[in-house]
Design a binder for these strands. Structure first.
Lengths: 206, 206
DNA sequence: CTTGTTTACTAAACAGTGTTCAGTATGTTT
DNA sequence: AAACATACTGAACACTGTTTAGTAAACAAG
């Protein structure tokens, strides 16, 4: 009987429909302004139906979070064509920041909002998206070490330092903590600080 | 007639009472789980009364935000007794991170949550708290330049880079984005990455 | 084809949210 | 004492996430 298989497929299809609807609304209105009722209306089902496919709102958020990581990874792909490992690292940072500016609501769900994280409190294994992305960075750092550009013991520690810096910029910017600077100064400050960090790394990390 | 003066005092006192109540609840339960009704109950007034003293919830949040900056500044004061400007800078970073760990809910309101920022959308002048704190950092960076430890053109750009790094660590940690590492590793990664950043600055920023 | 059972779905309710407004009761002024 | 201004509140409005009881359709067995 292929019936249970078809049922399973339909179930997956429904989950996809919900996540897709949720993502669209999040991107359009920001995650805080999207309610279960909004999502239900968008996919033309009753709110209660959503709860047959997702435990709660956080679980939907986590599904969008996972999907968004996929999108970001795509953005990263061209980076690996760059030969020089340091240039590769710099370009990765640039693209992380660019992704945040282009997709602020997705970035929010991926790296700032705590809600999607609450879903995984227990299951230690499924931090895979974050780990994978971080490992990618560690790999590039290791390439820099091999090429003799960096001289550090622990590539993960160096990667963490770099991630923190890039993420700091973006988070402060997105959360409107640079509003004390005038518009143009903000732009300059962001790009100059990033360049300075890259220069400092090149000189200091060896 | 001292009546209007007294009325004014009473009004201030009431605002203080509300902010104080709000702060207590925020610290205890996290800002997202605190409602106007909770605050009203805590100070033994009706919810509607609060709206006679604050335009909306964001305005209360902003008041707490301002207050929290005061608390953080106090935490920073002892730093200025340190003679070596680089050591002063390092200690400032350490205390920023410590403040975040000790007062996660206040840090949230100060640097992560967008809500209190929405209040000031128009009034360009009252970003004073953020500016003051940032200026303090710029000052220390300038001291490092004067002492010949740093050689950079723009102290603000350097300060921005440093702030981004420290803030990145804290934000990623507080927003549970380091959960992919086991508990002990997380600790090590945080402190080691911070140390590495300090070393990298010393070597790279001249 | 008619049963019984499982599945998919929803209307309605519950307990909460931020916010507004009409109405009251008190304090101040004339 | 009458008129007005101020401070406050109960009740409502339009929302929120989530649960539950009940219905209608899809499937399985006789």
């Amino acid at each position: 009987m292929g019936i249970i298989e078809r049922k399973e497929r339909e179930r997956e299809e429904m989950r996809r429909l919900i996540v897709e609807g949720a993502r669209h609304l999040f991107v359009a209105n920001g995650y805080e302004k999207v309610s279960i009722r909004n999502i239900a209306e968008a996919i033309e089902y009753s709110p209660a139906t959503i709860y047959l496919y997702f435990k709660d709102k956080n679980e939907i958020l986590y599904a969008v979070h996972s999907q968004a990581f996929g999108k970001m990874m795509e953005e990263f792909r061209p980076v690996f064509d760059i030969d020089d490992p340091f240039e590769r690292l710099v370009e990765m940072g640039r693209r992380y920041m660019q992704f945040a500016v282009d997709n602020p609501e997705l970035f929010d769900i991926m790296f700032i909002v705590t809600a999607p994280m609450e879903t995984l409190e227990c299951r230690e294994d499924i931090w895979s998206e974050g780990r994978t992305a971080f490992n990618m960075l560690v790999q590039v750092v290791q390439d820099c070490i091999k090429a003799g550009i960096f001289k550090v013991d622990d590539a993960e520690v160096a990667a963490m330092m770099i991630w923190s810096n890039i993420h700091g910029h973006t988070a402060l910017f997105l959360r409107k903590r640079m509003m004390m600077f005038p518009e143009e100064r903000r732009q300059v400050l962001m790009t100059e600080a990033f360049t300075l960090f890259c220069d400092t790394m090149k000189k200091g990390l060896n």
